[in-house]
Structures are given as C-alpha cells and as structure tokens.
Amino acid sequence: MPLEVVFLLEQLLNGLLVGVGYLLIALGLSLIFSLGGIVNLAHGGFYAIGAYAAVAVGNRFGFPAAFIVSPVLVALIGVAVERLLFSRFYRADPILSLLLTFGLAMVIEQALRMAFGATPIPFAIPDFLRGQVFVGDFIYSRYRLAILVVAMVAVFGLWLLLQRTAFGRVVRAGVQNPDMVGALGISLSPYLAAVAALGIGLAGLAGVMLAPITGVHPAMGSEILTASFVVVVIGGLGSFWGVVAAGLLVGVVRGMTVYFVPAAAEASMYLLMLMVLLARPRGLFGERIVRFE
C-alpha cells in the first residue's frame, strides 16, 4: 500500500475511535428527547459530574471502582433531576424545559467550579491500560481501544434493551404515541424516570472514560455538549442507528479534516450537519415523530 493510503486509513480508524466518544453522550440525549420531548442542555453537565466523581472515587479506590460507582451515581442524580424537575415540563411549552436545562447546565458548571476549583484536575490513564497496541504499521492507544469496547457493549446493550424487552417496547411506543400508551393503561411516568437514568448514566460513563484523555475541568460539559447535539441532529431524532452512524461519521470527518485542513477540524462537523440537513431535513435516519412535526 502506498504510504499516503496507510496514513489515511489510520486517520479513518482513529476517527471511528473518536466517534464512539460522542456516541455515549448523543445516545442519551436522543433518548431523553425522543421520549419526554426535553432537550437536555444539562447533559454535558452530567458528563462533567461523572468525570469529577471518577476522580474522587478513583483516587481513593482505583479506576475499576470509579468505572462502576460513577455512572451509577450520575444515573441516581439523573432520576432525582427527572422526578423533581423534568417531570413538571413534559407537557409544557418546550421553551420552558430548554430554559430549565440551560440554567441547570450553568448551575452544575459553577457548582463544580466552586467545589473543585477552576483549574484542571489531573486524572491519569490507569496503569493496566497504558501503552500502545501496534498492528503492522498502525498504532492504537490501548486506552482508546478499551473505550471502544466499553462503548460497543453499552450501545449493543441499549439496543437489546430497547428492541428485545418489554421495557423497550413501551419506551418505543411512548416515543411514537404517548397518548395511545396511556389509553392502554400504561403509565409512562416510571419509564420516563428509567430513560433519564439510562441516558444520564451513559453521560456519566462517558465522563469516566474520557476524563483521562480530555482532562477534568468545570467547562468540560459545555465543550462536549455542542458536538453531541450535532451528532443527534445529523443522525436524526428517534433513530438509534442514525445516532450511532452520525457519531462515527462525525469522528471520521473530523479526522480527515485534521489530515487535510487542520484549522477547520472543529468546523467540519457543522459543515457536515449543514449538508446533511439540506439533503435530509430529518437527519440521516430520522423518523417521522408525529407530535414533533
């Protein structure tokens, strides 16, 4: 293979690895929006809480403990927020929940700043995941491969949950027609709480996994939120695989842009979003959700 092609292929694969990072956050965002109609601008905040919790737990009990405790903790916070705040806004004007979560995002960021300080907190890759894996001329960070595995397990687990269980059937029905679900005598309320726990817990998981790479600081949530939104929009609302495809696509496009036009790296995803929306206003695999039309 000519060297140029090897380089490109390497960037392409790396782009996929970067994309799975966006995925964990975008899937939760999409899930919460699809079922409850809440655009959760505080989602990045929960990601940041996950990272800080990982530091607090990890420094005392090691990374594996942080990996388990932190997402669960964040999911529990998610349930509390859903019960106390989100639940009051499902039937309200979307602008109200937008304001609520926007405010919540600021409160979380500032609270983290007050509690832990504004400076980045070091959080190292655990020793057993340090180092690189070489395949021929290709190089991979071992830790990023670990992220890939965790993300894949999370994505397939979520998919199975939504497609193959009674729980998933109710959730999917609730996305399409909540009134009909109600008419069948099923209360969506516990499902909304469970979906918030899942979605927000996934953000916490992403926080643990990405903290050693991107650093732990109060604004880390707002940094990742925009990219995740772009992924959801490109993928299309309500579409599980659309979000997965979009996450990977954004990663790959970004990697390619760094290769050819580095200065445009962060702009590339917005350009991609623009092009996708022009061609397919509902996103790549966006479904028609009657109540959002």
């Binding site: 390497e10 960037q11 990072g21 190089i139 960070s141 880390m220 990697g255 580095p262 962060e266 702009a267």
Partner: peptide
C-alpha cells in the same frame, strides 16, 4: 505548522500526523 482550534480537546489525529 498545524493550526489547532482553541476548542479542540482530542489530539489523536494530530499525534498520528506527527508520527507519520
């Protein structure tokens, strides 16, 4: 001389380019 956007947090693509 690679320009890096100020909001970039992932440098993996740049690391590969350096290695290449």
């Amino acid at each position: 001389d690679e320009l890096v956007p100020t909001d970039a947090t992932d440098f993996s693509a740049y690391m590969l380019k350096i290695r290449q």
